[in-house]
Nucleic acid binder design. Structure first.
Length: 988
RNA sequence: GGGCAAUUAGCUCAGUUGGUUAGAGCACUUCCUUCACACGGAAGGGGUCAGAGGUUCGAAUCCUCUAUUGCCCACCA
């Protein structure tokens, strides 16, 4: 058996094990390796399966499936990815160890706009635009880019240790998923849930495409609310006359000859087709039906009345621009107003904007205000804070824009999702996200799915020119009287490219130029990756998946839509539990981003301290939003180092152990020493706690539990207690036989517990635990799984049976299949040992405290007396004489019932005993008296507070018995302490 | 304008269904390079759990209000 290196070499270990794991197929589900007949019966559409609810996958659930939130193909691993994937990997590795048929499906998203932007930037360096290349050539460029750079992110995920089944890796633009997208679109169309029409959508003038409501991120912007005069037309109208600037009309919104409107986007006035007031607004009632002159354009437009207008806001008069504002659009339809689009797709004023034609929208705003001012029509600018939509990809201010787009009717889909939730089929962790999800579903709006970019899934719709010519589509935009929804005449929606028009047999067909929103492929992810729409084995076996792990930002974009798609296309929710973890932020509270220069690169951290340390740090911080700084990774680094050294020590101590076994049956409780019984008992407790926490996504707490168990219990106490047992130098000559047996059992327990600790830690720190565990395996079996990167059959050893089973050293190839060490009954629970070690810890701490307080050098061998107030305590501490002496660095120790103090001695008091040491010559009597006085006051206060509680009749009456007992015990302990303090004080 | 979080030691945060003399990590003070580990060991100081009410035998924990911060949603031009 080889020793561990003094220093853990993370880089070497990580590459070695990851490539071995992957090449041997360890990440693939177990069912890939067994014959069809033995595959556990699929739960696909199993109606008897009830809400697995909040207690996690039931023990009988033999599968565990997660689909990865596919990172963008343009993505570079950032801390958000790291956190998300570390959490998934912990869950996946844990479930795999539990013996479930475990699958984590990885993949990458084609990220329409983001990717197109990247490639456009690239060709811009050659001074080319996508239009220069043309659609086909440009798409070739994108694919080329994808093949060259698209695997960066998946390589980086491997560095984290993510145990995804890479043989099932998918891309949202691959053939299978493209087929799924067409199937979904056509199915929705056939169900009447897809329509096409003219609406105001969010338009990004930079990306030159429509955006969904979710993609237009609203940000508060300090803008202007501009007040502008619109002259009233005298009737009968002789034509426009410049207004007199008197304006002595008094009321702000209306003068003798003009009204005043307020707007935040003055440039859109070029497309005004009315102004509106509230029908009951007494100030303006008389204006309804009159006309005003639209300044600059010199067009006459009507004053209409509409309930939408809020009389309280601005002047109570609003300009109406149906082509550039969603509310105005709705008003326009109610009043059959003309829609005048005054902008080009790239955000410039078009030919309908008169002299402003060709100006950028913001430039035009300035010029228009300037012109109004010159004409005396500009009243004032109020500073105004309002929400403005920004493109979530490029942050450009979004323009509400009238255009023809494809939509999905969402109401029917949302209703199914709401019903599924009522039936308990979707459970959010933490629960508060449920409300966010439900509120969005209840207020759902139709989903604009067409995008005017080139990189994406083409819409499976074809236009027949012959049929189209028989309808005048172009008139729709200008004729508000017609329905905004297209008749679909001349449009063929089909799974396969049609050869001819089914109506007129014309072969002159052209595919719709738009592509689908990226999320239209993402929302199919949980089943498209498994082969849908084909009825594949994977789909049967692995759908629905178990859990979804993601960040809150994409609950609407992705989570909610996946649920709706799963229900719509497969009749079942795609996952039962949704774990929403925190957002990663910089320590400043801002979002981490490269552009802000506050990001920490996970790969740099991995290189510096290893993936395991990164993982552990992230998880420990993940109880809520994660605020990161470099120092925060020290927790994980320190802990991984601690684990490494503890295991190194254990391996050194068991070198001469011949029968190293993981069989729990090897231990007979009564033959074990108290420390051995104690650590076995503590381990069992902690394993159960970790199990419970993991099953409800309490990863941070689980990591903390393990951290403290390993560090405090195992390293600080157990290993220290074991040292004298296993290190032969200390053997008292009078008990050689017993000592040899004690050494052997301690070695066995060290091996046994440490090996199980490695398994508990494995999901959190996979690399280091594998590396060390292989040494344990080598110790036990004389061989290890050599890290040859072979392409042979992915053989697996049979997993070690669950805790408590008869294990015959059948070690699997990897710790990944070593089984999860907590499935069995309580083997080692031991109240007696726990109590005994508690006493030992008190005694040792008491001595150490005295040593430190009186500055007694560690080399000074000291004499201590423990005065036991209880018989039980005396027995235990007498038995631990050697341990107490070693850990307290004592030359001599006496455990007595009664004690006559001689000379200058000081003590620490505990409920069942007091520890004394001799401090001849260094005792500051006054200081010690003061200290005791303080202790006495504290203890008296404590006693008083317990008394108050215990002696309250209604406490005795209403509190549970066990609490009452506990309080009484506390009171007794406190009284014993007080007595000790007082005795000491009087003895000075 | 609505909703949701957070507010606990100098800093970063844990605190399960109310029962603790309120915990951890970092930082700090003292001691220690003893043969697993100085990315370590031992000991220690430090908090009226944001504020005010309330429920309860008992509240950091439940309720109400207030303050501060952050996030999400929202068509008020």
């Amino acid at each position: 058996m080889t020793d561990l290196d003094k220093q853990y070499n993370s880089a070497q270990v990580e590459t070695k094990w990851y490539s071995l794991w992957e090449s041997r197929g360890y990440f693939r589900p177990a069912s890939d390796f067994v014959t069809q007949s033995t595959v556990p019966s699929p739960q696909f559409l199993d109606k008897t399966q009830k809400k697995s609810g909040d207690r996690g996958p039931s023990p009988r659930d033999s599968r565990y499936v997660i689909v990865i939130p596919p990172p963008n193909v343009t993505g570079m691993l950032h801390m958000g990815h790291a956190l998300n994937n570390v959490i998934q990997d912990i869950l996946v590795r844990w479930n795999r160890m539990k013996g479930r048929d475990t699958l984590w499906v990885p993949g990458v998203d084609h990220a329409g706009i983001a990717t197109q932007n990247v490639v456009e930037k690239k060709i811009a360096k050659e001074k080319k635009t996508r239009w220069d290349l043309g659609r086909e050539k440009f798409l070739e460029e994108v694919w080329k880019w994808k093949h060259e750079h698209g695997s960066t992110i998946t390589r980086q995920l491997r560095r984290l240790g993510a145990s995804c089944d890479w043989t099932r890796e998918r891309f949202t633009m691959d053939d299978g998923l493209s087929k799924a997208v067409r199937e979904a679109f056509v199915t929705l169309y056939e169900r009447g849930l897809i329509y096409r029409g003219n609406y105001i959508i969010n338009w990004c003038p930079r990306c030159q495409t429509a955006l969904s409501d979710e993609e237009a991120a609203h940000k508060d912007v300090q803008g202007g609310l501009y007040h502008i005069k619109y002259p009233i037309v005298k009737s009968p109208s002789p034509g426009f006359q410049p207004p007199s600037s008197s304006g002595r009309g008094g009321r702000e919104g209306v003068g003798i000859d003009h009204i005043v409107v307020a707007t935040t986007r003055p440039e859109t006035m070029l497309g005004d087709t009315a102004v509106a007031v509230h029908p009951n607004d007494p100030r303006y009632k008389h204006l309804i039906g009159k006309k005003v002159v639209l300044p600059l354009m010199n067009r006459e437009i009507p004053v209409i009345a509409d309930e939408f207008v809020d009389p309280e806001f601005g002047t109570g008069i609003v300009k109406v621009t149906p082509a550039h504002d969603p509310n105005d659009f709705a008003m326009g339809r109610r009043h059959k107003l003309e829609q005048i689009n005054v902008m080009t797709p790239d955000g410039k004023i078009n030919e309908r904007g008169g002299v402003y034609k060709g100006m950028d929208r913001f430039e035009a705003r300035k010029k228009i205000l300037q012109d109004l001012e010159e004409q005396g029509l500009f009243v004032r600018r109020d500073s105004h804070l309002h929400a403005v939509g920004h493109c979530y990809r490029c942050d450009t201010v979004v323009e509400p824009y009238l255009s023809k787009q494809w939509f999905v009717k969402m109401q029917p889909l949302a209703e199914k999702a709401l019903k599924a939730h009522e039936q308990g089929k979707t459970v959010f962790f933490p629960d508060r996200w449920t409300k966010v999800y439900l509120n969005w579903l209840r207020g759902i709006r139709d989903w604009c799915i067409s995008r005017q970019i080139w990189w994406g899934h083409p819409i499976p719709a074809w236009h027949c020119r012959a049929c189209a010519e028989s309808t005048d589509h172009r008139s729709h935009a200008m004729d508000p009287g017609l329905s905004t929804v297209d008749t679909m005449k001349g449009i063929i929606v089909a799974r396969e490219t049609p050869k001819e028009c089914p109506h007129c047999q014309s072969k002159d067909l052209v595919q719709d130029p738009d592509v689908l929103d990226t999320w239209f492929s993402s929302w199919l992810w949980p089943f498209s990756t498994l082969g849908w729409p084909d009825k594949t084995g994977d789909l049967k076996k692995f759908y629905p998946t178990s859990d979804l792990v993601t960040a809150p930002e994409i609950i609407f974009f992705w989570v909610a839509r996946m649920i709706m798609a799963g229900l719509e296309f497969l009749g079942e929710v795609p996952f039962h539990r949704i774990y929403i973890h925190g957002t990663v932020r910089a320590a400043s509270g801002l979002k981490m981003s490269k552009s802000l220069g506050n990001s920490i690169d996970p790969l740099e951290v991995i290189e510096a301290i290893g993936a395991d340390a990164l993982r552990y740090s992230l998880v420990m911080l993940s109880a809520q939003d994660v605020y990161l700084s470099r120092e925060k990774f020290e927790v994980g680094r320190n802990f991984t180092t601690k684990v490494w050294n503890a295991c190194r020590f254990v391996l050194m101590q068991i070198q001469d152990l011949e029968s190293a076994s993981t069989d729990a049956g090897q231990f007979k409780r009564l033959e074990l020493s108290l420390p051995n019984r104690w650590i076995l008992s503590r381990f069992e407790e902690k394993a159960a706690g970790v199990e419970r926490l993991l099953s409800q996504f309490g990863l941070a707490q689980a990591a903390a539990e393990l951290y403290h168990f390993v560090w405090d219990d195992f390293c600080d106490w157990y290993i220290e207690l074991a040292k004298p047992m296993v290190q032969s130098g200390d053997v008292p000559p009078q008990s050689v036989g017993g000592q040899a047996a004690l050494k052997l059992q301690t070695q066995k327990v060290l091996f046994f517990v440490c090996e199980r600790i490695l398994r508990l830690l494995h999901p959190f720190m996979p690399f280091m635990t594998e590396e060390i565990w292989q040494r344990f395996k080598e110790k036990a079996t004389g061989r290890m799984s050599l890290p040859h990167v072979s392409s042979g059959n992915p053989g697996r050893g049979s997993p070690i049976k669950a805790f408590g089973d008869d294990e015959k050293n059948e070690w699997p190839e990897s710790i990944m299949f070593a089984g999860w060490p907590h499935d069995g009954p309580k083997h080692f629970y031991d109240a007696e040992a726990q109590k005994a070690i508690g006493l030992l810890q008190d005694a040792v701490s008491g001595i150490r405290d005295l040593r430190a307080r009186f500055q007694i050098a560690p080399t000074d061998k000291l004499k201590a007396v423990i005065v036991c107030k209880e018989k039980g305590a005396r027995e235990v501490l007498t038995a631990f004489e050697r341990e107490v002496k070693t850990l307290g660095r004592l030359a001599e120790l006496q455990c007595v019932r009664t004690f006559e103090k001689k000379g200058a001695m000081v003590a620490n008091a505990f409920p069942s005993f007091d520890v004394f040491i001799s401090v001849e010559g260094i005792l500051d009597l006054e200081k010690e008296k003061k200290r005791l006085g303080k202790k006495i006051r504290e203890t008296e206060a404590w006693i008083k507070s317990i008394r108050k509680k215990v002696e309250n009749p209604s406490f005795a009456e209403k509190a549970p018995k066990e609490i009452l007992e506990k309080e009484k015990e506390k009171l007794e302990d406190a009284q014993k302490l007080l007595l000790s303090y007082k005795t000491q004080l009087t003895s000075f």
